[in-house]
Simulated assay, not measured.
Amino acid sequence: MVTVQAGASLGSGVVLRSDIVVTNAHVVDDATDVTIGFADGVRSPGHVVATDVVTDVAVVRSDRADLPVPRFGTDLPRPGDVSLAIGSPLGFENTVTAGIISGLHRDIPGSAAQTASLVDLIQTDASISPGNSGGALLDATGQIVGINEAYIPPEAGAVSIGFAIPSATVLAVTDQLLTTGRAVHPYLGVSVGQLTAPIRQQLNVPVDRGALVLGLDAGAPGERAGLRPGDVIVEFAGKPVNTVEDLLGALRQTQPGASEPLVYIRDGNRTQTTVTVGTS
């Protein structure tokens, strides 16, 4: 575990390779150089190698090398498993909180308007606070099962509802970032918005849940599958779509090149098509 300081931003990080640290992209923001604080009190310069805003992952090269590398799991934990969150909340370095895995494949409601990263996450009740971002979520054996990402604050009525990016996602994205400098993601080329009551009334949509198609990239998979602005996507890849976050989460779990079923509502009619997932 390390602390990552990027200007006024303070977050956490985890050693990924002997000279590489992984953290959240929102921790480093647009910084190119950061300061990395280690558990033994040593501080070292770090240099941001690459970031991926879709998954909110960043990789940083440390001037201090030969760092001990922890074990990263590739399988999802199970709901009810013990979880430990380690980080630097509010600057309290190497803080550990304990809880359980509360759920898998979670999306934070309403997050899609700000970012595409808050989908397909691990939920935990181990306390996560500002500064925990980028830190480790461990299981009872000390294996890293996720990178802490976000929490719902108490003012929203929440108590210990935190989220982490699954380790398998982190490993897949960081490998691409370190190899090519960018990560490739499944892509539909569809701009979507929430289906609100006024929009339902205006468009005479007979369903009250789904993702409203606002626009389509020319020649993109969504357009080739026959979608049009005004359509309401209600299922994708065999999963129900009640919100924009549902669609983003289902897309995250597909692979580029896969042909997936998609169900949409148009003019009151329910239609199924097949879309070949692209890359972005």
Rank of each mutant, 00 (worst) to 15 (best):
M1Q: 13
Q5V: 15
A6E: 09
G7L: 00
S9Y: 14
L16W: 12
R17T: 07
T23C: 03
H26Q: 08
D30T: 14
D30V: 10
D33L: 04
V34F: 04
T35H: 10
F38L: 11
P45N: 15
V48F: 03
V49W: 05
T51F: 00
T51G: 04
D52S: 05
T55M: 13
V57W: 03
A58R: 09
S62I: 02
D63G: 07
L67R: 04
L67Y: 01
L67M: 10
P68R: 08
P68Q: 11
V69M: 07
F72P: 04
L76W: 05
R78Q: 15
G80R: 05
D81W: 08
D81A: 05
V82P: 11
S83R: 02
S83P: 07
L84M: 06
A85T: 04
I86G: 01
G87N: 06
P89A: 02
N94G: 14
T97C: 04
I100M: 12
I100Q: 03
S102W: 00
G103Q: 12
P109T: 10
A112Q: 00
A113S: 08
Q114H: 10
Q114I: 14
D125E: 13
A126W: 11
P130Q: 01
G131I: 03
S133C: 09
G134W: 02
A136G: 01
L137Y: 03
L138A: 05
D139T: 06
A140C: 10
G142E: 01
V145I: 14
I147A: 01
N148I: 11
N148P: 08
I152Y: 06
P153G: 12
P153L: 11
E155R: 14
G157T: 08
A158R: 01
S160Y: 12
I161A: 06
A164R: 05
A164W: 10
A164E: 02
A168R: 15
V170C: 08
L171W: 09
A172K: 15
A172P: 07
T174N: 15
Q176K: 13
L177A: 03
L177R: 09
T179P: 03
T180P: 03
Y187D: 08
L188I: 00
G189H: 02
V190C: 05
S191Y: 05
G193N: 04
T196Y: 05
I199G: 11
Q201T: 11
Q202M: 04
Q202I: 12
P206R: 00
P206C: 06
V207Q: 01
D208G: 13
L214Q: 12
G215E: 09
L216I: 06
D217P: 02
D217T: 13
E223P: 12
L227S: 02
P229I: 07
G238R: 03
K239C: 10
K239F: 14
K239G: 15
P240R: 10
P240G: 03
V241R: 00
N242A: 14
N242H: 11
G249H: 07
A250P: 06
T254P: 02
Q255W: 14
P256L: 05
E260M: 12
P261N: 01
V263N: 12
G268E: 04
R270F: 09
T271S: 13
V277R: 00
G278R: 02
